[in-house]
Simulated assay, not measured.
Amino acid sequence: MSRLQQLRRQLTPGEVYRRTELTNWSKSVDRHLDELVQEGTLQKLSQGLYYYPKESAFGKTPPDENMLVESFLKDHRFLLTTPNVYNSLGVGTTQLYNVRTVYNHKRHGEFKLGNKTFQFKIKPHFPKKVTPEFLLVDLVNNLESLAEDSSEVLKKVADKVEAMDKKKLKHSVVEYGSVKAKKLFAPLLQPHTL
């Protein structure tokens, strides 16, 4: 069995691989990766990152975004979200954005992984999963980067605060809010002080 065949046998459809992981099975990893990409077994997603597509009734499936980001970061501690989820809050945001935001502890900047763009932002704190309270704070943190009318959205944010669990919201403001967001939420969360 050739080295290339040995390497191919180690691969599992649906998995994302870093080049460094594959050096265990190949002494000529770059040549073998080029061959596997040429024959269509692997897809190159970015520098040093490859995907073995799964076949479905509709063709080759894209990689799972969480798996992709975890392989890229070499870390499972991140929060993957998108500005599109702000629309679920009912505060007047309706735009759709073709970008995914990754809060993490390692990388900062915009990266194209496969055919998707990810905006990596280093944050000291972020929750394990998106909650409505975190989402509202995150919306206010990022309001200037959205296409909507900020003043209209902020009026609806004030109304939304009234309907939310104040204790949970206060915790999210303290943990995840920017200085500007903390100032904005402070009067809305009275009589509690931040």
Results as ranks from 00 to 15, higher is better:
Met1Tyr: 12
Met1Thr: 13
Gln6Tyr: 00
Leu7Cys: 02
Arg8Met: 07
Arg8Pro: 07
Arg9Val: 03
Gln10Tyr: 07
Thr12Ser: 13
Thr12Asp: 12
Thr12Ile: 15
Pro13Lys: 09
Val16Pro: 03
Val16Arg: 02
Arg18Asn: 03
Arg19Glu: 09
Glu21Asn: 01
Glu21Ala: 05
Asn24Arg: 15
Ser26Thr: 04
Val29Ala: 10
Asp30Ile: 08
Asp30Met: 00
Arg31Cys: 08
His32Pro: 14
His32Trp: 14
Asp34Leu: 12
Asp34Val: 13
Leu42Cys: 06
Leu42Phe: 05
Gln47Met: 09
Gln47Val: 06
Leu49Ala: 02
Tyr50Arg: 00
Tyr51Cys: 04
Tyr51Asp: 06
Tyr51Met: 01
Tyr51Ser: 01
Tyr52Pro: 03
Pro53Lys: 00
Ala57Arg: 12
Thr61Ile: 13
Pro63Val: 01
Pro63Arg: 06
Glu65Met: 10
Phe72Asn: 00
Phe72Arg: 06
His76Arg: 14
His76Met: 11
Thr81Phe: 03
Thr82Met: 09
Val85Phe: 08
Leu89Arg: 04
Thr93Lys: 06
Leu96Tyr: 11
Asn98Met: 14
Thr101Leu: 15
Thr101Lys: 12
Val102Asp: 02
Tyr103Cys: 02
Tyr103Asp: 01
Tyr103Val: 06
Asn104Glu: 07
Asn104Lys: 10
Lys106Thr: 15
Glu110His: 05
Phe111Ala: 15
Leu113Ser: 01
Lys116Tyr: 01
Lys116Asp: 04
Thr117Lys: 14
Phe118Tyr: 07
Lys123Trp: 02
Pro124Tyr: 11
His125Lys: 13
His125Gly: 03
Val130Phe: 04
Asp138Gly: 09
Leu139Val: 03
Leu139Asn: 00
Asn141Val: 06
Leu143Pro: 04
Leu143Gly: 04
Leu146Arg: 07
Asp149Gly: 07
Asp149Ile: 09
Ser150Thr: 12
Ser150Gln: 15
Ser151Phe: 13
Glu152Ala: 15
Val153Arg: 02
Leu154Lys: 09
Leu154Ile: 05
Leu154His: 04
Lys156Ala: 10
Lys160Met: 08
Val161Asp: 06
Asp165Ile: 08
Asp165Trp: 08
Lys167Tyr: 04
Lys167Thr: 02
Lys170Ser: 07
Lys170Asp: 03
Lys170Cys: 02
Ser172Leu: 06
Val174Gln: 05
Glu175Gln: 15
Glu175Tyr: 13
Glu175Arg: 13
Glu175Phe: 12
Ser178Val: 00
Ser178Asp: 07
Val179Arg: 15
Lys182Gly: 09
Lys183Val: 08
Phe185Thr: 03
Ala186Tyr: 06
Leu188Asn: 07
Leu189Ser: 03
Gln190Asp: 00
